[in-house]
Design a binder for these strands. Structure first.
Length: 383
DNA sequence: GTAAGCCTAAACACGG
DNA sequence: ACCGTGTTTAGGCTTA
């Protein structure tokens, strides 16, 4: 998901809070693709101590053992404080990780890195969390600064990027000032309802790539549990409200819960590529280890989650419970798999999903760190 | 190699 | 004149 999250590698080293030593995470791909997931089983780099100073930390074992140790999906010992969202936002700039990780380890550096959201999503979150669902540019700056202290030390160019996004991105609309703020400079900006579903989906995808990448089947409660943790974690962004319904939490177990407009063109200059990458990467995920039927199964689910070319209408509801214009719902998924075979696949899939989702959940939290490292690594590799 | 999307920087215009 | 805001353009980067 490079471009969405990252920034020019040349600039990275100039950014305060992004020390070069974080390149030790390079290769720990933010999206948890299969190669990385496979690396997780590697016997190498099994602890922070072991990887300390190891510039070639190229697998997920570090994540498993140092991030996941306090976060067991759906388990009784699940700790909301270890929510990846907390990693992303709540502890940005803090010296200590949410799960008590020492300040000198890489998590501490990760929280100071760039948020794993595109500017579009940052703006969207800021606007949606405002009481009036509209904000002047200045308040958008403020919200971003408040929630992502990374920007407080970042070069001022990010404000330019925010304005650039507001102007260029069709998802955002300028509101007549007479309708909004009475005084002050500039206009109010709000989210165009027409594009809100796109933003919502991107937020879901970008924030919680694991569940969507693997398109969790209904039996997989872990994804939903994890999302519940995301939303319940103190200091975290209220994702349920951002994703369109404050009453019904985002149900990741439903493939159709992530649908957006039937018209892919609506995506415009918005981060559809992120979505494509999520789904495409899922094709190389652990699902690929399934047999043909399993692949068909997985593809059916993926098709449902993408939902761009389906036939049936679906309903979306905004945060006020107002029904949005009907969007497309994917055709009902047919399961050509025999009951027993399906069950076996399901069990296998569940196990892999649990493992992968756990990894990816935390990857979401440190993705900003790892993405940068990955970029740098890639660039270095190219050279 | 190409296309698409995002990020960043810069320049310019406008208004308070 | 200064500053903040809004728009536009250009270049670079990454991924499919």
């Amino acid at each position: 998901m490079g471009p969405i999250i990252g920034m020019s590698p040349d600039k990275k080293s100039e950014i305060p809070g992004m020390p070069e030593e974080r390149t030790g995470l390079r290769g720990v791909c933010g999206m948890g693709t299969l190669p990385e997931a496979e690396c997780a089983s590697s016997p190498l780099a099994t602890s922070v101590d072991r990887t300390e100073g190891d510039e070639e930390l190229t697998n997920l074992n570090w994540l498993h053992e140092n991030l996941l140790q306090n976060f067991t999906l759906g388990g009784p010992e699940a700790q909301p404080s270890a929510s990846p969202l907390l990693d992303i936002e709540g502890d940005y700039g803090s010296e200590q990780g949410p799960s008590g990780t020492p300040p000198h380890d890489r998590v501490g550096h990760a929280v100071k890195s760039k948020p794993p959201f595109s500017f579009s999503l940052l703006i969207y979150m800021a606007i949606e969390q405002s009481p009036r669902k509209s904000l002047p540019v200045k308040d958008i700056y403020g919200w971003i600064l408040e929630h992502f202290p990374y920007f407080s030390n970042a070069p001022t160019g990010w404000k330019n990027s925010v304005r650039h996004n507001l102007s260029l991105n069709k998802c955002f609309r300028k509101v007549d000032r007479s309708l909004g703020k009475a005084n002050g400079k500039g206009s109010l900006w709000c989210v165009d309802p027409e594009y809100r579903p796109n933003l919502i989906q991107a937020l879901k995808k970008q924030h919680f790539p694991a569940a969507h990448a693997f398109c969790t089947p209904p039996s997989d409660i872990d994804a939903a549990t994890a999302m519940m943790l995301l939303n319940s974690a103190p200091g975290c962004i209220n994702l349920t409200s951002l994703t369109g319904n404050s009453d019904v939490p985002l149900d990741l177990s439903r493939p159709d819960s992530v649908l957006v407009s039937s018209d892919p063109k609506q995506d415009h200059n918005y981060s559809s590529m992120a979505l494509q990458r999520c789904s495409s990467r899922s094709s190389s995920s652990s699902l690929s280890s399934l047999d043909e039927e399993g692949c068909e199964h997985a593809q059916s689910i993926r098709a449902g989650s993408e939902g761009f070319h389906s036939e049936e209408d679906m309903d979306l509801w905004d945060e006020k419970g107002v029904q949005l214009p009907p969007l497309r719902r994917p055709a009902p998924i047919k399961w050509p798999i025999r009951k027993r075979a399906r069950h076996e696949i399901k069990v296998e899939l569940d196990e892999e999903l649990k493992e992968a989702a756990g990894s990816l959940l935390h990857l979401a939290g440190i993705r900003s760190c790892t993405e940068g490292s990955k970029r740098k690594s890639t660039k270095h590799h190219r050279k």
